[in-house]
Each structure stands twice: as structure tokens, then as C-alpha cells.
Write a protein that binds this DNA or RNA. Structure first.
Length: 640
RNA sequence: GCCGGAAUAGCUCAGCAGGUAGAGCAACUGACUUGUAAUCAGUAGGUCACGGGUUCGAUUCCUGUUUCCGGCACCA
């Protein structure tokens, strides 16, 4: 007999070798039905794995957050089993659960096509109906290697496991997989799932190695949950900025203009201009100085900065004129170094904060381009802060807080904060260990002092220094970098930047690189998806649409109102086309104009405005003055 | 760049066992003069992404290229 201790503190004796499932069953049949796995002395146990000693347990039920992962991990195994039956020569990479489902990386011996997913899914259903028990077995490394000898990927995985580590495999009928576990006990428990897409994926994430085929899928505990998730996926497509950008005429990507080179249409440029003014004011208040520097620069400049040796692959090729070689700038830091050098600086001058809306060109891999999210010509909300060493922490923190302010104003949500560090193994970073250690230590200290939660990302730093990246999630589920603060001791060296200290001696300033709210291109993609195209009034390309009921009877009043709104700096448009009222209203709604105003006899007679706010069917009648002050307040407060 | 998929009118899409294409919306013309999501009628609009091949004949089949989509790698 063994003693099982429950989370509520109670204890009970069971036969040695009892499973979570059986313990759950002994409590109630309902709990048995709901249970999917359990923790035994803190270790994740499958539903049917025998418990051999006294233990403290916690049963995981379908409602617990781990349950989704366990189901989807098991679904990945089910997928692999189905593929193995259909493609007997198939070899397998890794097959984990992910945020919204699972995938498995497969080398099927022949290309799997999208149309094959259907038959694979059918096979999965059949195996599920076979109700095969999923059992765990532990074995030593040599045996594991022998068992998987025909699958070079598994052999590599096993070989890389530390000596002495327990290796476990999971069997379900005719299929056995290397796996740490946490499984669902029986294939019959995987009932509601769907294979979603097929993609290429490099083995171990290394583009120099084989490419496997990755099948994505999602599994749920009920038909309804699965249906709801598929609905969510459908709804996400409606938020896709490429679709909305077309519908709302925000931007255009034209092949003759060039791949990844976006054209801003009038509506899109209007929003961009509002954002430009917003950023300018925000930075003004924070003590930034605005400068402007060229998109073209000498290659020499980028040799001095180190971009030419560290970043050349991401740059468009050099061009030569009059014996000088020029490049399109991928970043503006070198230019801003020169701006700093344009004058003699005193310690009293620092910090100096140069901001610029920097148009820059980067040679992004063709496969990386995606709408406005990844482009090759972009305008960054950039800044470089030149500070004394004693000012570093405060300035990094201020820059960080300014970013938080902007993100809040735009009603965006941070997914998480990353601290991107160097990885010495990778060659792409400058090699002054002392500077790296100092920069990384300072950022870590700051994040700790301010109690900012973050994830460390080794090897993700810029070549010149570590950075704090602020990540957001797009409607399509991509994680992208929204903002960044980077600490740089290198470029001041390379450009031989100095300031005169209180001791009368020359000192080296430190540079903080800062991206406020990414680029206009990426920001626009994020905003379109965030607002589903319905911009808040302060950002909307057209804020007010004035529609007369009858052109003859109400046209003059409509024109008077429209002129007044424009005088008050609102972006108002008058619809005097010879069209039906319903037609014009529909169009205003389709274009998601925040305030749609219809004027008829009522309004003309009493000098009133009847508006309908986008997203609401309610018609509200107010005086012209009330309407103006309401709108003004809304715009200043950046309300929705 | 790599793996898989796709490309038909300005937009959304249908169609073609191989016999040079169709709808709705938008545009244009005319009629209608309207109180909260599409008035009616007519007109025009396409080298079916581009090049090569097979064929009596290719938008359709094969092949190359380009671009886009889902991912991977890369990354603001």
C-alpha cells in the first residue's frame, strides 16, 4: 500500500501501482471523466502511469490550463501515428503542443501535399476510434538508440540527451515515440481535432540543415470548443491588415513599385500624418531634439559604424558615383553620431536626445515580406540618446516609460518584454567582452530595480549592444517587435565621440538607441488589426461624414456644417453625390467613419446635429456647439 | 532564401473532361429626389500573372519565371 496525499491535505491509502485515473475514479465518476493527467510529487504523470510510492498528488482536469497542452501533445502523437501508417518510411522530428494546438515535424519520405491532410486526419479519427491505450516505458540510452536506429532525427535527439537522464518512450498500438510525456491515457480521448496547415520547417531550427514538413493542428475537449476555435480563426482573417488595408484604401503594394515597397494611399497617409504629429509632440515634451538626415550615405560611414561588416547581408548593394561608394541606409545611428559630432559637447549638455522619423531600406528575405508587417522600405520612429554613464539608467527608464505611454495612447497591449543578449557562439556581435558585460549588467539591474518582468533572449542582441524589446501579438498571431531600447558602448568608440567633463578632460558618451512605436508601416498593420479598421476618432482618416437627406432642401446646411467642422480642424467630408440616402449611409459605415451625420428638416430648422457613432445604431441629436466640444474632448483624450 | 499552396475584370469570386470567359459590387450614361447599411435600367471593362513546350487548338496539361498566401530561417 502507498499513501496518497491530496491538495486539500487529506490522505488515503491505495494499492501500489495505482494510477491517477483510478484514484480519480475512486473519488467520483465525474472526476474520472474530467481528469486528463496529474502531478505526482511535482512530476507530470500520465493518466494511467502507475504510482509506485507514497506521493503528494494533484489531478489535472479538463478545466486546468495544463489540460489543453496535454491533449494537444497527445494529438501530435496521434498525427505521427497516422502519418506512419500512411507513409511507412516516415521519420519524425519534434511534435510539441503550442499555444493554440500542436504540430509535428515530419520527413515522410515523399512530399506531403495540402490535399493529403484530409486523409491523414481521417486516419487519426480511425486510430482514435481504435481506443488504443497510451503507455509509458523508461529505458536506458543505449536501448533507446537501438530502438530508434531507423529514425536519424530521434537518434540525434537521444544522443544529445545528457548521460544518465531517464529516457521515456510512449507506445500506442503500432506506434512508439520518444517523449518526456504527460499524455492522455488512451487515443479515444482525442476526439475533437482538425489539421490546419502544412509548412516547411528546418530541422532544429537551423537553415543549414534538412527541411522537414510541419503539419499544424488543433485539438479540443469538446466539439463546441473546436468549433469555437475554428470560428476564432475565421474572425481573425477579418482583422487581417492586408484585407482591411485594401478595403479602407490605406496602402497599396504594387509589383512595379517593388517587392516590400509600400505605397501610402491618401487615407493611410492621413493616419500616418496624425501619428507623426503625435510622436513629434510626445518627444518634444520629453526633451527630444528633432533632426533630419539622408536615406543615402557613404559606404565609409557604415564601415566606421561596423554595419558594413556585421549587417551587410541586410543591406541593398552598394552603388558607385564619382569614385565614392554609397549605400541605402538600413539604420540611422551612424548619421546621428555625426550630428552629435557637429559640435563640441560639455557634460552639461548631456543627455542629448536626437529623434528622427527615419526612412530606411533593408534587404529583407523575400519569404519574410508580409503586407505592411515586414517591408523593405520603412520609416522608423527612431531616436538616439547621448548620455553620460551616470545617466544611463534614468535615460533608459525614461525612454522605456515614453514607449509605455505611446502604447497606452494607441490602446495596444504588450505581449511581453524581451531582454536580448549576446550569444558569444554566434559571430555576429562585436567582440569587446568588457563592454558587453557592462551593458548587459546595467540593463538587468534596471529591469530588476523597476520590477519589469522580462524574458531573456540569448543571441538576439543588436551587433553593437543588448536591447530591451517590447513585443506585441498581431491578429494573425505573430509576435512582432513594437518598440526597443538598446544600450550601445560601441558606436561612441568607433566614431570617437567625446564630451568635456567637469574635470576638463575628454570623456566617452554612451548611446541609447530607441525605437518608439516601430515603423509607420508596421504600426499601421498593428493598428488596423487592433481596431479592425475602425480607427478611434483622433486617428480616423475621415472623422465626420455629413450627409444631407435632400440635396436641394438640406445641401446648404450640410455644407455649412462641413465647413465649420473643417474650420475646427476636424477631418470632415460632405457627401453631395446624387445618390440615395441609404447608399451613402452604407458607404460611410463600410468605411468605418466614426461620426456619420445626417441632416434634414429637423436639423436645419433648429441648428442641430444628428449623429450616429460607428458601431452603434443609436441616433443622437445635439446642438452644433455640443457636438464640437464633445468631439474636441474625444480627440484630445484619444478616446475611442 | 527554403518547403507547401495560389494567381480569372478595379474589388470579391464562379467557370473550363483542352474548343480564346461569367456574376455581384465598383466605374460610366440615363431615369428616380429620398430620414439611417445597397433605387432601377443600360454601357463599358479581361493577351484568364508572364515566358516556353505538348496539341489542329491551351485560361485549362507540362515546364521555367514573377508575385502573393501558410510556415521555417531572418527580423523593426
Amino acid at each position: 500500500m502507498i499513501k496518497i496525499l491530496f491538495p486539500d491535505g487529506s490522505a488515503k491509502e491505495f494499492e501500489k501501482g495505482i494510477s491517477i485515473e483510478e484514484i480519480a475514479g475512486s473519488i467520483s465518476s465525474g472526476l474520472k471523466k474530467q481528469s486528463v493527467a496529474g502531478y505526482v510529487n511535482g512530476e507530470l504523470f500520465d493518466l494511467n502511469r502507475p504510482i509506485q510510492e507514497d506521493a503528494e498528488i494533484r489531478i489535472i482536469t479538463k478545466k486546468d490550463k495544463e489540460a489543453f497542452e496535454i491533449l494537444n501533445h497527445s494529438a501530435a502523437h496521434l498525427l505521427a501515428q497516422a502519418v506512419k501508417r500512411l507513409y511507412p518510411n516516415a521519420k519524425f522530428g519534434v511534435g510539441p503542443a503550442i499555444r493554440e494546438g500542436f504540430y509535428y515535424d515530419i520527413d515522410a519520405g515523399e512530399p506531403i501535399r495540402e490535399e493529403d491532410l484530409e486523409k491523414i486526419e481521417k486516419m487519426m479519427k480511425r486510430i482514435s476510434q481504435e481506443q488504443t491505450v497510451i503507455t509509458r516505458r523508461e529505458l536506458p540510452k543505449t536501448e533507446a538508440l537501438a530502438f530508434f536506429k531507423d529514425d536519424k532525427y530521434k537518434v540525434e535527439l537521444i544522443t544529445d540527451l545528457p548521460e544518465g537522464e531517464i529516457i521515456s518512450v510512449y507506445n500506442q498500438g503500432d506506434f512508439t515515440d520518444l517523449c518526456r510525456g504527460g499524455h492522455i491515457g488512451n487515443t479515444k480521448n482525442i476526439r475533437f481535432f482538425k489539421l490546419l496547415s502544412l509548412a516547411g520547417a528546418y530541422w532544429r531550427g537551423d537553415s543549414n540543415r534538412e527541411q522537414l514538413q510541419r503539419i499544424y493542428g488543433t485539438a479540443w475537449y469538446s466539439e463546441e470548443d473546436l468549433k469555437n476555435h475554428l470560428l476564432v480563426l475565421e474572425e481573425r482573417k477579418e482583422r487581417d491588415h492586408r484585407k482591411l488595408g485594401k478595403e479602407l484604401k490605406i496602402f497599396e503594394l504594387n509589383n512595379d513599385a517593388g517587392q516590400g515597397l509600400a505605397l501610402w494611399l491618401p487615407a493611410g497617409y492621413t493616419v500616418r500624418k496624425v501619428l507623426e504629429d503625435y510622436v513629434y509632440k510626445l518627444e518634444k515634451k520629453a526633451g527630444y531634439l528633432h533632426v533630419s538626415t539622408p536615406a543615402l550615405g557613404t559606404k565609409r560611414l557604415y564601415e566606421i559604424s561596423g554595419h558594413w561588416s556585421h549587417y551587410r547581408d541586410n543591406m541593398f548593394p552598394a552603388m558607385e558615383r564619382d569614385g565614392e561608394v554609397f549605400v541605402l541606409r538600413p539604420m540611422s545611428c551612424p548619421h546621428h553620431m555625426l550630428v552629435f559630432k557637429s559640435d563640441l559637447r560639455s557634460y552639461r549638455d548631456l543627455p542629448i536626445r536626437y529623434a528622427e522619423l527615419v526612412t530606411q531600406h533593408r534587404y529583407e528575405a523575400s519569404g519574410a515580406l508580409s503586407g505592411l508587417e515586414r517591408v523593405r522600405a520603412m520609416t522608423l520612429t527612431d531616436a538616439h540618446l547621448f548620455v553620460r554613464e551616470d545617466q544611463i539608467k534614468k535615460e533608459v527608464l525614461d525612454a522605456y516609460n515614453l514607449i509605455l505611454q505611446a502604447i497606452k495612447d494607441l490602446n495596444l497591449e504588450i505581449e511581453y518584454v524581451e531582454l536580448a543578449l549576446r550569444d558569444k557562439e554566434k559571430g555576429k556581435f562585436h567582440d569587446n567582452d568588457q563592454l558587453w558585460d557592462l551593458a548587459e549588467r546595467l540593463l538587468k539591474e534596471l529591469l530588476a530595480e523597476e520590477e519589469i518582468e522580462y524574458t531573456e533572449m540569448k543571441g538576439e542582441a543588436a551587433f553593437y549592444g543588448p536591447k530591451i524589446d517590447i513585443q506585441v501579438r498581431t491578429a494573425t498571431g505573430h509576435i512582432i517587435t513594437m518598440s526597443t531600447v538598446q544600450l550601445d558602448f560601441l558606436l561612441p568608440e568607433r566614431f570617437d565621440l567625446n564630451y568635456i567633463g567637469s574635470d576638463g578632460e575628454k570623456h566617452r558618451p554612451v548611446v541609447i538607441h530607441r525605437g518608439l512605436i516601430s515603423t509607420w508601416e508596421r504600426l499601421m498593420s498593428i493598428l488596423l488589426e487592433q481596431y479592425k479598421g475602425a480607427f478611434p476618432t483622433w486617428l480616423a482618416p475621415t472623422q465626420i461624414k455629413v450627409i444631407p437627406v435632400s440635396l436641394d432642401a438640406h445641401g446648404a446646411y450640410a455644407k455649412k456644417l462641413n465647413d465649420l467642422f473643417i474650420d475646427y480642424d476636424f477631418r470632415s467630408e460632405l457627401d453631395m453625390r446624387d445618390e440615395k440616402l441609404g447608399y451613402k449611409i452604407r458607404e460611410a459605415q463600410t468605411l468605418k467613419v466614426p461620426y456619420q451625420i445626417v441632416v434634414g428638416d429637423n436639423e436645419v430648422d433648429s441648428n442641430l446635429v444628428t449623429y450616429r457613432k460607428f458601431g452603434s445604431a443609436e441616433q443622437v441629436t445635439v446642438t452644433v456647439e455640443e457636438f464640437l466640444s464633445m468631439l474636441k474632448k474625444e480627440v484630445i483624450e484619444k478616446g475611442n
